[in-house]
């Protein structure tokens, strides 16, 4: 186990009478890729949203780099270096790739009393990020004209704007063609190689087994498995997800 960058201790979350998560302990190591699996309603998205600051836990603590944190919003988590690639990528189709990368944190420059958008700087930085991600996405193309893989690259490029320490990816391969899956998995490996921790939520067994170092399985709000990927098999994972295997 690599030194933990993020620790979740005894996290519970309930919405009214519904218990979404119960007593979850998870540690994320630096530069580690953790596959998070579970059936629909198992609590994966809730867990990710707690880490990303969208939700606050009902009980338990979140410890980031040794310090206890409590994010009031996603902006707070983002400032602490936690980035999310949302399931539907959260792109505005009517804007360009560069606009989307910088959405919500646009670069500006001053002209006299005015603070105006610095399109050139944003396009330049976006182009750098795309080439870093080895994607041929062009910064000034409208997102609506892009392929699934390019859209994915735009969403991932956002996470590279600041010094992200943790990137949470919610079903990054669900909406793209099989051909493009490989590209996304390569992107994940490159993030890992830079020492960035990646949490990969996926329904696709082959994806998780291709890139993850460790597998965490949730079922009905509880953690039922947490082990190195090398010590498990797709068959065992399936059993854990469905409940055929109670715990491992």
């Amino acid at each position: 186990m690599k030194p933990p960058i993020l620790e979740l201790k005894n996290i519970s979350k309930h919405f009214g009478a519904i218990q979404a998560l119960e007593g979850i302990d998870v540690q994320l190591g630096q530069g580690e890729v953790v596959g998070l699996m579970g059936d629909n309603g198992a609590g994966k998205s809730t867990l990710v949203r707690i880490i990303a600051g969208n939700f606050q836990p009902s009980a338990g603590e979140v410890i980031l780099a040794g310090e206890r944190v409590r994010f009031a919003s996603s902006a707070g988590a983002r400032q602490s270096g936690i980035e999310v690639v949302h399931q539907d990528l959260a792109l505005c189709d009517n804007l360009t790739a560069a606009d989307n990368v910088f959405l919500g944190r646009e670069l500006r420059r001053r002209i006299g009393p005015f603070s105006i958008l610095d399109y050139r700087a944003m396009a330049r930085r976006a182009a750098e990020l795309f080439s870093e991600l080895q994607s041929e996405t062009r910064p000034n193309d409208k997102v609506r004209l892009m392929s699934g893989g390019q859209r994915q690259a735009v969403a991932i490029a956002r996470t590279r704007l600041s010094d992200a320490r943790i990137v949470l990816m919610d079903e990054p391969t669900a909406a793209i063609s099989v051909r493009q899956v490989g590209t996304v998995l390569d992107l994940i490996k490159r993030l890992r190689d830079r020492g960035i921790t990646v949490v990969l939520i996926s329904h696709r067994m082959p994806d998780v087994f291709a890139v993850a170092d460790r597998l965490v399985v949730l079922r009905r709000g509880r953690k039922v498995a947490d082990k190195p990927i090398a010590d498990t098999t797709p068959e065992e994972a399936t059993g854990l997800i469905t409940g055929a295997i109670a715990v491992a």
Partner: peptide
């Protein structure tokens, strides 16, 4: 303004 009109939820998630 353009982002909100294009995809309000996405704009929201990105801090607009």
């Amino acid at each position: 303004v353009y982002a909100t009109g294009g995809n309000e939820r996405a704009a929201d998630l990105n801090g607009v």
